[in-house]
Amino acid sequence: MKKTFKKLLALTLTGVLVAGALSGCGKKEDKDSKTDSKTITIAASATPHAEILEYAKTALKEKGYDLQVTVFDDYVKPNEVVESGEFDANYFQHVPYLESFNEEKGTHLVVAGKIHYEPFGIYPGTKKSLDEIADGDSIAVPNDTTNEARALLLLQDNGIIKLKDGAGINATVNDIEENPHNVEIVELEAAQVARVVNETAYVVLNGNYALAAGFSVGKDALAYEQNDSEAAKTYVNVIAVKEGNENNEAIKALVDVLKSDDVKNYIKETYDGAVLPYEE
């Protein structure tokens, strides 16, 4: 397993967000009025966000921009330093978290670009193919609100169940409307799901727990969230800026580079399916 994969184990943007201590912070003047600056300061989580940004530095340098990346290990301070103007942007969060942060904290952060998502996958348990599914099979899923909904949506996308109209990202087992194989949905704490691979037909895991269990998303997943899935569109990780700065030339240059074919190929080759570029 690649070294990068090991670092992914500490990252769970798809699950409950846990605040930690700040590992670094760059202090500078409020940048709101300095839209022509050739220095871009960005707050990021270590993996994969800061790694992707480090790779993007060369292309940005060719465009005349100096990208300065500061790693944070909590999910509060990166938004606060962008709101205050200490940093130009951040890259660590998905849209639902950004929206809930704005609502709770009264901040004014907006999406400047949608960059990647970290897909949920269906992995083999006692059955090695979805074609083998049989009446009464059990499927283990995470039991927390966000992750369970994503797991159920993935099962629906693969024809295993059908959810009530409108259930969407708030779906629970109570929203299962059709269950043609009479599968039993086994709800477990997210970290426990992979431990029942020898007891259930299939398990549904988010990327970091799949890696912890020794699964390769690219090689072992029987199915995973696609770019056009509701979950991928919802939980795409974004470049966030303070409202009004999304059209700054420096920010547009940053987003353009991160959405370039070069960076997309880097993401695909580095993370073996655990991180995938988002296609609009």
Rank of each mutant, 00 (worst) to 15 (best):
Asp220Ala: 09
Val236Leu: 10
Ala213Ser: 12
Asn247Glu: 15
Asp220Ile: 11
Ala191Asp: 05
Gly244Glu: 08
Asp228Trp: 00
Ala231Tyr: 05
Leu222Asn: 07
Glu189Cys: 00
Val236Asp: 11
Asn237Arg: 11
Asn208Cys: 06
Ala232Lys: 10
Val217Tyr: 00
Tyr235Met: 12
Glu246Cys: 12
Asn245Gln: 14
Tyr224Pro: 00
Leu205Ile: 04
Ser216Gly: 01
Thr234Asn: 13
Ala221Cys: 06
Glu246Arg: 06
Asp220Lys: 09
Asn237Gly: 02
Ser229Met: 10
Val186Ser: 03
Leu188Glu: 03
Val238Ile: 13
Lys233Tyr: 03
Gln192Ala: 15
Leu222Phe: 09
Glu246Asn: 08
Glu246Met: 13
Ile239Asp: 09
Gly218Met: 07
Glu199Pro: 01
Leu205Pro: 02
Ala223Ile: 11
Val196His: 03
Tyr235Glu: 13
Asp228Phe: 03
Lys219His: 09
Ala190Glu: 13
Val193Arg: 10
Glu243Trp: 00
Val203Gly: 05
Ala221Gly: 07
Gly218His: 04
Ala240Leu: 04
Ala213Leu: 07
Leu188Gly: 00
Ala213His: 02
Val238Met: 01
Ile185Met: 10
Leu222Met: 10
Ala240Glu: 14
Tyr224Trp: 13
Gly207Ser: 15
Phe215Tyr: 15
Val217His: 04
Asp220Val: 10
Val241Trp: 04
Val183Gly: 11
Phe215Pro: 09
Val241Asp: 08
Val183Asn: 11
Leu211Thr: 04
Glu184Asn: 15
Asn208Ser: 15
Val186Gly: 01
Tyr202Lys: 06
Glu199Trp: 01
Val204Asn: 03
Leu205Thr: 02
Ile185His: 07
Lys233Pro: 05
Asn198Cys: 01
Ala213Asn: 03
Tyr209Gly: 03
Glu189Pro: 11
Gln192Leu: 15
Gln226Glu: 12
Ile239Ala: 06
Ile185Ser: 08
Glu243Asp: 15
Val186Leu: 11
Ile185Asp: 11
Ala223Trp: 08
Leu205Gln: 02
Ala190Phe: 06
Thr200Ile: 00
Val238Cys: 04
Arg195Glu: 15
Leu205His: 04
Tyr224Leu: 14
Ser229Phe: 08
Tyr235Leu: 13
Val193Gly: 08
Val196Ala: 02
Val241Met: 02
Gln192Asp: 15
Ala190Leu: 10
Asn198Met: 01
Lys219Asn: 14
Asn245Trp: 02
Gln192Ile: 00
Val197Glu: 14
Ala190Thr: 14
Gly207Pro: 12
Ile239Arg: 11
Asn206Met: 12
Asn206Lys: 11
Asp228Gly: 00
Leu211Gln: 03
Gly214Val: 13
Glu189Tyr: 10
Glu187Arg: 15
Gly218Phe: 04
Ala221Tyr: 05
Tyr202Asn: 06
Glu187Asn: 12
Val186Tyr: 03
Glu184Asp: 14
Val203Lys: 06
Glu199Ile: 03
Glu246Lys: 07
Asn237His: 15
Asn206Ala: 11
Val183Pro: 10
Ala223Tyr: 10
Val241Ser: 05
Val204Pro: 02
Asn247Gly: 04
Asn245Phe: 02
Asn206Gly: 09
Glu199Gly: 01
